[in-house]
């Protein structure tokens, strides 16, 4: 199959290795990859900032780039950008009175898949170890990004692929479906609320003890990694009052077979006993958070394409093996 790669602006400019990993995976499956050269961005950044007029040329550019070359399906290593193509581009084009662009955008969007969607639904990959030779002998936790979950309805596609990587240790992230607080310009328009959300996401990731946190959207991973890195450098959360209601506890359960399993469970807010204690309008957390008590260096974020591309012959290295981590992102 001839597959057109939509790298997305953030991967193109910040994380070229994620696009390279995507190409590697697809070639490994025997497909031809093309890169429509005129591509830039899906326009989401402008649309979500309410700048429909400025988004129109960006949408137009995307449609021009992807209609001027021949391909069977297109793929992007980002659920958010793929969702924007289908959910936002036609809407904005129509709002700008550009019906032709709306139709063309919907057509391109209809043939563009998020990476795990393409691998699972179109290319029939069910076992990353068997089908792709994926190998990553490390502990990994996974953040399912909002737009993948709620706009593309990816369900377990991403996590199933990650779980099927050879020798991976998959650790469930408590409160995984909570937003990391990025939200594009939300992070700069309401930086404190965004940082408060990020701090809780970082707390739960740290509590898993996983070496890396993966996911399918470079933008969320950039944000989460940035928070992890800042915490590891300074030992505290910044940019927002140091308050949280999220506490991660370890619980163990015994199943019917008599096996003990350890789980991480997040408790949000005061439980009933705490409710009885007098309210304190202070700024310090009720108890030291996991992160404050157990400062641990090493957690970083990495896009799932790179884990899927990692093999025994050419493994992706983590920080403890000498890899560079920059701004919380694994290079």
């Amino acid at each position: 199959m001839k597959i057109a790669l939509f790298a997305t602006c953030i991967v193109d400019g910040m994380y070229p290795e994620v696009a390279q990993a995507t190409v590697t995976i697809l070639r490994r499956l025997g497909h031809e990859v093309t890169f429509p050269s005129g591509q830039a961005c899906c326009g989401q950044m402008h649309i979500n900032s309410g700048k429909f007029e400025q988004a129109e040329p960006v949408i137009n550019n995307h449609v021009r780039a992807f209609t001027s070359t021949e391909w069977d399906v297109a793929v992007a290593p980002s659920a958010s950008c793929v969702a924007s193509l289908g959910h936002q581009q036609p809407m904005v084009a129509r709002r700008m009175g550009n019906e032709a662009l709306a139709t063309a955008a919907a057509d391109v969007a209809g043939r563009t898949y998020e990476l795990s969607q393409l691998l699972t639904d179109v290319l029939g990959v069910t076992d990353a170890a068997a089908d792709l030779g994926s190998y990553f002998p490390h502990s990994v936790t996974y953040h399912p990004s909002c737009h993948g979950m709620r706009l593309l309805r990816l369900g377990d596609r991403q996590s199933d692929l990650i779980r099927s990587v050879e020798d991976i240790e998959f650790i469930e992230l408590p409160l995984a479906d909570a937003c990391c607080g990025f939200g594009g310009t939300f992070s700069v328009k309401n930086p404190e609320v965004s940082s408060a959300m990020l701090a809780d996401k970082a707390r739960t990731i740290q509590a898993t003890g996983a070496e890396v946190c993966t996911g399918g959207d470079a933008s969320c991973l950039l944000h989460i990694g940035g928070g992890l890195s800042r915490f590891q450098r300074t030992g505290r959360f910044e940019g927002t009052p140091d308050v949280t209601a999220v506490h991660v506890k370890e619980t163990s359960a015994t199943d019917i077979g008599g096996d003990h399993t350890e789980h991480l469970t997040a408790v949000v807010g005061a439980d009933d006993d705490d409710h009885l204690t007098a309210g304190e309008h202070g700024t310090s957390p009720a108890e030291p958070s996991q992160m404050q008590s157990g400062l641990r260096v090493g957690a970083s974020t990495v896009h799932l394409a790179r884990i899927l591309a990692s093999t025994k012959e050419d493994p992706l290295r983590v920080q403890s093996e000498g890899a560079t981590v920059s701004g919380g992102s694994l290079r």
Partner: peptide, 29 residues
Amino acid sequence: GKSMNSLPGIAGAWTSSRDIPGLPEKSFR
């Protein structure tokens, strides 16, 4: 190629709580 941890202006709203990875040498393009 180092991470960016404190930027002025609007970018400062970002670096108030988050670091930014160092820029790659070349874009994917």
